[in-house]
Simulated scan of single mutants.
Amino acid sequence: MNNHNIIRAAKCAHAQRIRSHFQDSGDTWRMWQGIQAIINYRITPPACDGDASLPEALNSFYAWFETQNNVAARKTISPPNNQVLLLTTANMRKPLCKVNPQKTAGPDNISGRVLRECEHHLVDVLTDIFNISLSHATVPTCFKTTIIIPVPKKSSVSYLNDYHPVALTRFIMKWFGKHIKTVLPPSLDAQQFAYHQNHSIDDAIVITLHLAISHLDKKFTYMLMLFRNFTSAFNTLIPQHLIGKLSLLGLNASLCNWIL
C-alpha cells in the first residue's frame, strides 16, 4: 500500500471514529468527546499550583491599589424624601426558584440545590435580611466574604497582573446584585454594554460594524477607530468617584451608600 492509500485509510478511520460519537444522541459525554476531537480541544494545565507563596503575594499586590487611593469614602446624608429600596418576597422567590444547582457554592458552602429546594422556608428570612441591610446602608461582613481563585490569563505567567481573580460569592449576594441592576435609572448611556441588562459584547460589535459599514458605503470616506485598554481598571476604581457618578445618574442616596 502506497503512502496515498495509507493517508486515505487513516482519514476514513478518523472520520468513522468521529461519527461514532454522534450516533447515540442521548450520550452527551460521547458527543462532547466527538466535539473535542473535531476542534482539537486540549485542557491547559494550571500554571499556579504548588506555589505556597502565591496567595500572600496576590494579597499584597491587590492591597497596593487601595494604598494608592487617597480619596476617603464617605457616606452622604439621605434627604428627607429619600425612597429606600425595599424588596418583596416575590422579588426573592423568583431567583430562588431559578438557581442553577450545578453552580459552585460560595464560601458558605451552601449548594444551589439546597436553596432551590428550601425556597419556601428561606424567602421570608432573606427578604427581611436584605431590607434591613438596605435601610441601614450596611452589608454584613459575611456576605462580602468571597473565595478568590487566581486564573492565569495566558499560558506563561510573568507577573502578578497576569492572573485573573475569579471570585466565588454567595448565591444570595449574586441575586441581590442582579436585582440592584434592575432598578438602575434609564439615564444610563444606551451605548454602554457591560453590566447592562440584555446587553453584551456582541451588541457592541454589531453596532460598531453597522456604523462603520454604513459610513464607508459613502464615496470618498474613511474612518479612524480608537481602542483603549485600561490595565487593572477594576482594581484602580475610586469608590467615592463611582458613587458621585451614580448619584448624577439618578440613584438615590441610600442605595449609593449601600453600594459604597
Rank of each mutant, 00 (worst) to 15 (best):
T169L: 14
T104A: 15
S133T: 07
V84Q: 03
V114E: 03
L249W: 01
P95G: 07
L85H: 02
T76R: 14
N257W: 03
L126F: 14
L168F: 08
N5E: 15
I18C: 06
V183H: 06
A137L: 06
N40L: 10
H215C: 10
A13V: 09
Y222Q: 11
I205D: 00
L209N: 15
L87E: 01
A13H: 12
P186E: 00
G34Q: 10
L246F: 10
L134Y: 03
T28L: 14
Q68H: 13
N40A: 14
N109T: 05
N81F: 06
R19H: 11
H4A: 12
G112M: 09
K11C: 07
N82I: 01
K94G: 01
K98V: 06
T28H: 12
N40W: 00
K103E: 05
P186T: 03
T221R: 15
V114L: 15
V123S: 04
T76M: 11
F220L: 12
W64K: 13
A10D: 08
A233L: 10
I7G: 02
L246V: 02
V166G: 05
T231N: 12
T236C: 15
I43T: 14
T104R: 10
L242Y: 05
G26M: 07
F234K: 06
P165N: 00
F234W: 11
R170V: 10
H14E: 15
T88D: 02
A72D: 12
H215K: 08
A72K: 14
K103S: 14
E56C: 08
S247I: 06
G250L: 01
M223R: 10
V206Y: 13
G50M: 09
W29F: 12
N109P: 03
S200F: 00
L237T: 15
N131S: 01
R228H: 01
F22M: 08
E66R: 15
I213H: 11
C12M: 11
D124S: 10
I207E: 10
A52I: 12
Q192L: 00
P239S: 07
W32N: 12
I238W: 11
A73W: 05
F227N: 01
S158L: 12
D202M: 09
K219S: 12
K245T: 04
K218N: 14
